[in-house]
Nucleic acid binder design. Structure first.
Lengths: 111, 111
DNA sequence: GACTCAGTTAAGCATTCACTTAAGTGTTGT
DNA sequence: ACAACACTTAAGTGAATGCTTAACTGAGTC
C-alpha cells in the first residue's frame, strides 16, 4: 500500500508534528481543508493523508458541504493520552516537593 | 545508519507501545536492564535500543553498578505532552457539560 | 589470565512513513 | 454540456523504524 496508516493508534497519530499542528489549528473551530492546509509548506495530498489518519483514530470528523470538506476536532481520544500521562504527574509533583524540602534544608545549612 | 533514532522528540518516543510499557514498568522503581526486559518477547538488543531512545529524550537515566546498568524513570519531559494535551481538556469538559444539559432536557421530554 | 555475565554496538533486513506528482471523483458555475 | 474547483486516491520514492543475529566491551569469577 502507498498511503501511511499510522497504526490506528492515538499515540502514533499525535507523534507527527504536522498532525499536532493540524489539531492545534482545529481548536479554532471547524474548517475546510484548504483553509486548514494554508499555513503548511506541504502539498494538498500530504495534508489530506494526515487528516485521514486523524480521522482513523477519530481525532477529527468530516462534514461535506457542497464541494468543500469541513474538518472538526474531536478531542475525546486524547483522554487516552491524558490518562496515561496522568500516571506520571505524581512523579514530577513528588520531585518538586522533594526539591522544596531540599531547598528548605539547605537554607538552614547555609552558614 | 542502522539503529533507530526516533527524532529526539518526546511525542515520537512515547509513540511506540514497547517504549510506553518500559516506562510503565519503570514506575515501580529503578531496575537493571535484564529485569526490565524480562516480560517482553523481544531480544535484549531490541530493548537496549528502545532504552537508548528513551535516554535521548531524557525520559530515563542510566546508572552503572558493577556490570549492571540500572535504569531510572525521569518523567519531566512528559510535562511537554501533558501541557499539549491540556489545551484539549477544556474541549471535552465542555462536551461533557453539554451532554449533561442534554440529559437534563431530555429527561423532561420523556413522557 | 581464561571464562562467564550484563549489556551495548554493528550490520543487515523488511516494513512503515511522509512526501511527491499524476490521475480520479464529485460539485458548482456558465 | 463543459470547464473550474475542492478535494481524494493511486503510484512511486527516499528515509526512518523496529527487529534480528553476530561481534564487541567491560566487570566480576575461577
Amino acid at each position: 500500500m502507498s498511503r501511511p496508516a499510522a497504526g490506528a493508534d492515538v499515540f502514533q497519530a499525535i507523534a507527527d508534528p504536522t498532525r499536532r499542528a493540524l489539531l492545534d489549528r482545529l481548536r479554532a473551530g471547524e474548517q475546510p481543508m484548504k483553509q486548514l492546509a494554508q499555513p503548511f509548506a506541504l502539498s494538498l495530498p500530504a495534508i489530506s493523508q494526515h487528516l485521514r489518519i486523524l480521522c482513523e483514530v477519530s481525532l477529527v470528523t468530516q462534514r461535506r458541504v457542497g464541494r468543500q470538506r469541513f474538518y472538526r476536532l474531536n478531542p475525546e481520544p486524547l483522554q487516552q493520552v491524558s490518562a496515561w500521562v496522568g500516571h506520571y504527574e505524581q512523579f514530577w509533583t513528588e520531585k518538586l516537593a522533594a526539591l522544596g524540602e531540599y531547598l528548605e534544608d539547605s537554607a538552614c545549612d547555609e552558614t
